[in-house]
Design a protein around this nucleic acid. Sequence first.
DNA 1: CTCACGATTAGA
DNA 2: CTAATCGTGAGA
Length: 201
Amino acid sequence: MNSNRRKLPRKFFIRPAKILAPDLLGKIFCVNTGKVFLSGRIAETESYPGIKDPASHSYKNKHTARNDILYRPGGLLYVYSIYGIYFCCNIVAGKKNDPQAVFIRALEPLEGIDTMKKNYPAAKSLKHLANGPCKWTKSFGINKSFTGEKAYGSKIYVLDKAAIKRKYIKRAKRIGVDYAGSAKNRKLRFYIKNNCFISKA
DNA sequence: CTCACGATTAGA
DNA sequence: CTAATCGTGAGA
């Protein structure tokens, strides 16, 4: 089997979010519902390292019905709704009871583009289908019911690809976490340099 | 029960 | 720049 066809195993996700986030760049995120197959190259991620990070939903070990999935071992999806109209999708990172996550902010659409356009008809062009956290979830049909779904299963999985070289990975501050005090300045956002499918600078 | 607000986006 | 729009969590 070609290594480029290899699904990342659960073990891949059982690592700290700040390591997993850059390692996910360039990998292929896939959704296979049986009816449709959608895929995209991960272009931009952020890490939410958990209990010590004011920007994380699990800051100070906050544990509620919504974020319960974060307390399970890595490799599961954590999808939550925001502003009443959008969905944000994370992959749980780290071990059990270490509530970390990697937020997927942008993808480069690869396969199933017709379906994506159907899911998100307002997108102005190809790159607008997936260049933002709540845009790509819309194109891919990801919603809250995907919470708890395995990211190494048959419906959702991530295909391995050669690691992106360090010099092609850009680090930056996370977006939309201005409420997080000094943690807002931590460079926990990662994206592929010169990639035009990332969300706004 | 009430109420304030968000890991965003589209549109003026 | 602001409105949209409701799940969520905190507090009474």
